[in-house]
Simulated assay, not measured.
Amino acid sequence: MAVLHALAADPARWRYGYELGQEVGLKAGSLYPILIRLTDRGLLDASWETDPPQGRPPRHLYRLTGAGVAMAAELAAVPAKPATAPRTELRGAW
């Protein structure tokens, strides 16, 4: 949800994975599988950087599709569930 929310702030803008990871506080091992799944589900467009600076390989860029914008809006409209409190009562005798 955090990735969709970050991308929804400016859905037409292409974003780098590293930049998104920094913004939402996810490391590459968590972020990139999320980006791949969102792309596979048609919620993100993915593209290679066309003009990388000299000496650096091209990077992947991501942005929301129309379906991704709709999903982000839908998720933003749903109120967050409160965390459930741990149970404090004791169980019956074993």
Rank of each mutant, 00 (worst) to 15 (best):
A46L: 04
L64E: 04
T84I: 15
A72V: 14
L31K: 01
L44K: 09
E74V: 11
P52C: 08
A83F: 01
T84K: 04
R63F: 01
R15Q: 09
M71G: 02
G92P: 07
A6Y: 04
A76R: 14
V24F: 10
A6F: 02
P58C: 07
R91C: 01
L38Q: 02
A2Y: 07
I34W: 09
H5Q: 05
A8G: 13
Y16A: 09
R15C: 02
A72H: 04
L64V: 15
Q22R: 11
E74C: 00
Y18V: 09
V78M: 13
Y16F: 05
Q22S: 00
G68Y: 03
G66H: 03
L43K: 09
R56V: 08
W94Q: 04
K27H: 14
L75E: 08
K81P: 03
L4W: 02
E89H: 05
P11G: 05
A83P: 01
D51N: 05
I34Y: 10
W48E: 14
R37D: 06
W94T: 00
L43M: 05
L35D: 03
H5R: 00
P86H: 10
P33M: 07
T39S: 14
A80S: 08
G55I: 07
P53A: 15
A6E: 15
M1Y: 01
G17Q: 01
T50C: 01
G66L: 03
I34V: 10
A77G: 15
A80E: 04
L90R: 05
A72C: 07
A67G: 04
A28G: 14
G55L: 02
L31S: 06
V78F: 01
A76V: 12
L64I: 08
A76M: 11
L38P: 03
G17R: 05
A72T: 11
